[in-house]
Each structure stands twice: as C-alpha cells, then as structure tokens.
Simulated scan of single mutants.
Amino acid sequence: MNDTRLPELSPGDRSAVRALYRRALEGWNLRDGSAFAGPFAADGEVIGFDGTRHSGRSAMAAEPGRIFTDHATPEYVAKVRRVRALGPGVAQLDAVAGLVPDDAEDPDPALNAVQTVIAVNAGAGWRITLLQNTPARYDLRPDLAQALTAELRGLTGRGPGPE
C-alpha cells in the first residue's frame, strides 16, 4: 500500500516558517515595502485581497511602497492556524488575518482574510514563495464571520500571534 502521509517539519523549521510570515506582516505594519518583501524568494508571489498578483520580490517591494505613500493602510493582526510539511523543504502555513484601520481599535470585518503561505528551503534557508489572501466572507455562515472577527479582535495590538 502506498503511504501518502506527509513528512513532519522539525520544530525549528516550523518556527522559521512562522518567523517569515511574521516578518512579512511586520513589514506591512511598518509601511515598508522592502521589509514586507524581504522574507520572500526572489521569484516569490503575493496574491492580494482583491486578486491582484505581484510577482518577484522587487515588484512586491515597489507596489506596497506606492500604496503606503498614497494611502493610510490598516495594520495586520493574524493568528497562525497550522504549519505543515508538503514535502522535503516545502511547507504550508495557514493563518487568519484582519486589518485594523488607523482610526479604529478593532479589525474591520469586511477585511478579514484567510491567508496561505507556501515556503521553500532549497538549502539556503526558508523563503516565502507564495502568500495568498482570500477574503473571509463566509457568505452562508455569518456566525463564522462573527466568530473570526471576535478572535481577531483579541489579537489587536499583538501582531501575528501564536498558533
């Protein structure tokens, strides 16, 4: 019988992948495009909340930099749900995230998201190759949307939290 179980990540690798995610969100919260893009592979990608795709670390640094200059961007709060191996040197991080506008104390429920990160360690350390944002609208389950907002509200001011 074929064993389809995925390999385990070491605690150090799980920690490294979490740290990449935390650094990317901290870069966003600092409104620093280069800091946001820093944890990504040179050919990494971000798929934004609105579906916009940014490919390459330089584009990921430049586009948020323009956004930060032109707009007051909300601050991320996030909670990592899990980190798991997909194969040797490949990991997936699943998180939920919210954005807190400057003039608010709580995340804006309309901006809640489910985020997936794919990270790769090709021998030179872990790097993010993809960060995918999906709006967490829960159209047919308003109870889930409310519960997520309440959970994220508990993280306000703490940044990306523990699993």
Rank of each mutant, 00 (worst) to 15 (best):
E45Q: 15
E45R: 14
E45Y: 13
E45C: 10
E45I: 08
V46D: 11
I47R: 12
I47K: 10
G48F: 01
F49D: 05
F49A: 03
F49G: 00
D50T: 13
S55G: 11
R57L: 01
M60N: 04
A61E: 07
A62M: 10
P64C: 03
P64D: 08
G65V: 00
F68G: 02
T69W: 10
T69D: 14
T69M: 05
H71Q: 15
H71S: 11
H71R: 15
P74Q: 12
P74N: 08
Y76M: 07
Y76N: 07
V77A: 04
A78L: 01
K79S: 13
R81W: 07
R82G: 09
R84P: 01
A85T: 01
G87M: 00
G87I: 00
G87L: 00
G89M: 02
G89F: 06
G89T: 04
V90N: 01
V90Y: 02
A91K: 04
A91R: 02
L93Y: 03
L93T: 04
L93W: 01
D94W: 08
A95R: 03
A95V: 09
V96H: 15
G98F: 06
G98Q: 00
G98P: 08
L99A: 12
V100Q: 12
V100W: 08
V100I: 11
V100R: 10
P101M: 09
D102H: 13
A104W: 06
A104C: 11
A104S: 12
A104R: 15
E105A: 13
P107M: 04
A110N: 11
N112P: 04
N112M: 02
N112G: 03
A113R: 00
A113P: 01
V114Q: 08
Q115R: 12
I118L: 14
I118A: 02
A119V: 03
V120R: 15
N121F: 00
A122I: 02
G123A: 10
G123Q: 14
A124P: 02
W126Q: 10
R127N: 10
I128E: 13
T129A: 13
L131E: 07
L131M: 15
Q132H: 10
N133L: 04
P135D: 02
A136I: 09
A136M: 04
R137G: 13
Y138S: 14
D139K: 10
P142C: 05
P142L: 06
P142Q: 08
L144R: 15
A145W: 03
Q146D: 14
A147P: 01
A147F: 02
T149W: 07
T149I: 02
A150L: 09
A150C: 01
E151H: 09
G154T: 05
G154W: 07
L155G: 04
L155W: 09
G157F: 04
